[in-house]
Design a protein around this nucleic acid. Structure first.
Lengths: 161, 161
DNA sequence: AACATAAATGAATACTTATTCATTTATAAA
DNA sequence: TTTATAAATGAATAAGTATTCATTTATGTT
């Protein structure tokens, strides 16, 4: 908490005016990170364009977000296993991923994707990106354009009919 | 440390006879988890069998391990982002994944997999499994046989030529 | 200017947790 | 049995970190 306060340019006690305690701070921070990440994912997404174009845009946005906001991504990953997140935040953030859910559904409706449970499709997309970015980061091998394209191709081919 | 000692049926001080400090304990524990996980991955793997059979066995083993030893999986995930793991452990555990690396190379040599950097292929496999298991666990939806098969198909189709 | 309210401070407190060490208990050798 | 060595103990210490609160500073109103 003291470190967070310092980083925010506040005294430790001031933090407790805005957040009841550490738990609340973590929950609010998580929800905001989740919100901002999802918003980023749909930047420049035009539902009027053909599905593959739209999906590619979102996919690239997810990857880019995880790369450029790696610290936030790590924070969110850690929250997943932590005892801090409460039911309320869980429910709230589950709502937030709905747009991504809808996108995957569209892929199925247009017979582009396999007939697989929407959630499983979504998890597959997220998983391949997350692990790819994490690995690139820690092995200190920056993601080249071809590496990114390969990742996308694997993801796409995995889901397409 | 006291909780670990209690769980191990030891007094706190006794832990410090076997491990210099918490850092060393974490590093040793991580290395052992990694070792045991990789060993599990190759259970019943017969290199004489056709590639797809062998790969399926390993893939299923990885998934099964993550499900049955979820706590270890979480621990290893957390270590990844923690300040505890030292260079030595990093190097050591990188050696350990070589068998998995070899397996992916074989897939390329036999023209089954796409011509993609071996490491990227491996990360793709791991990533899709990890996220899938994690999600099943926290959403408390146990992985059905069809869910697992779908996961495998997506993974395989993503990598195959 | 005087007053009231809100926001900010950071040292002190309370709680948690890693580490030490003097002492005890087990094991083995003479 | 006696002695020596190794292993284990857990209360005490040290270090770290969340939270409180009496006091100070800023902001706005009459």
């Amino acid at each position: 908490m003291s470190e967070i306060a310092r980083e925010a340019g506040l005294a430790t006690g001031t933090l407790y005016i805005y957040f009841k305690n550490k738990e609340e701070l973590i929950n609010v921070l998580f929800a905001r990170c989740r919100q901002s990440s999802i918003e980023n994912y749909f930047q420049n997404y035009d539902p009027a364009l053909p599905f593959k174009s739209g999906f590619t845009t979102v996919w690239m946005n997810i990857l880019q977000y995880r790369v450029q906001h790696f610290d936030k991504a790590v924070f969110m990953d850690q929250c997943y296993h932590s005892p801090f997140l409460n039911e309320c935040t869980m429910k709230l953030t589950k709502q937030m991923i709905k747009p991504l859910f809808k996108l995957m559904e569209r892929g199925k409706e247009e017979n582009v994707f396999k007939e697989i449970d929407t959630f499983s499709l979504m998890v597959f997309v997220i998983g391949s990106i997350h692990e790819g970015v994490k690995n690139a980061h820690y092995s200190r091998k920056p993601l080249t354009k071809t590496a990114v394209n390969n990742m996308f191709t694997m993801c796409w081919d995995g889901m397409k009919r």
